[in-house]
């Protein structure tokens, strides 16, 4: 091989290495939450803790309660999530006539298509799989916590025992065996839906007009979709 050809091959090879990324699988997973169906029982939070050994006071998923009231003035918004909603919610101390709307919103990692957490990890310890799941290699994480700072949804936490960052994986160990995530499995009302983008029940839901994502202005392209939530949820 001549020198010129050799250099050309090396350059093309290097370009290919840096520019060509593996094609994304068409079978990406998505998650849909129907807020209307959530009763705030906290079963999902408990199941997640048991399934994934989540440390106390840390949450891979949690439930928020939104109460919007008005006594003749503009709306007042009250949000709470005592213990991540794990043990349910207490009675409201609000005049019922003043309540405009009240509902529960389960939260979890959005497994964004453009995840800021993956972009900032200095050592490539977190990445997005072909199925669209954002994972962390805990044996590689250096514990700099930069990804926690970058996540706009507060989905990541620092595991003070293992000294690394952790978060929801949509129960990757289960979904890759054809099962559903623990939180979806235990939800008594079917408020949490999980499946592949092409699945019929997912397609049916995504065709609804009131479907939305959280913090769209940040252009993170979440793969968790919400049905029946008000403007006050972000």
């Amino acid at each position: 091989m001549k020198r010129r050809e050799f250099i050309k091959t090396i350059m093309i090879g290097s370009l290919a290495f840096f520019l060509i990324k593996p094609a994304k699988s068409k079978d990406i997973f998505v998650y849909v939450v129907d807020s209307k169906k959530c009763i705030g029982c906290g079963s999902c939070v408990k199941a997640c803790r048991a399934e994934n050994h989540v440390p106390e006071r840390k949450y891979r998923t949690w439930v928020e309660r939104y109460v919007v009231t008005s006594n003749g003035e503009l709306e007042n918004i009250f949000v709470e999530s005592p213990n991540g909603g794990e043990f349910g919610f207490g009675d409201l101390d609000v005049d019922e006539n003043e309540i405009l709307r009240a509902y529960f919103v389960p939260k979890l990692c959005m497994h964004c298509d453009k995840p800021p957490c993956v972009k900032v990890c200095p050592v490539n310890a977190t990445w997005i799989t072909e199925e669209g799941v954002v994972l962390i290699d805990k044996s590689h994480c250096i514990g700099c916590k930069y990804c926690i700072q970058a996540c706009p949804y507060g989905a990541r936490y620092f595991n003070h025992h293992e000294k690394v960052v952790d978060k929801c994986t949509w129960c990757y160990h289960r979904i890759m065996r054809g099962m559903r995530p623990a939180c979806v499995t235990v939800c008594p009302t079917g408020a949490r839906m999980f499946g592949k983008l092409q699945d019929e029940h997912i397609q049916k839901t995504l065709r609804e007009r009131n479907i939305r994502i959280l913090k769209p202005e940040l252009n993170t392209r979440p793969k968790v979709f919400y049905e029946n939530v008000g403007w006050e949820v972000w």
Partner: peptide, 22 residues
């Protein structure tokens, strides 16, 4: 500040060039 300071050198071994920290 690092949770795993013994892995700090990974910044040079497996750098993510889209990360400001790397």
């Amino acid at each position: 500040d690092l949770g795993q300071p013994q892995r700090a050198f990974e910044i040079y071994l497996t750098p993510n060039f889209s990360s400001v920290m790397a």
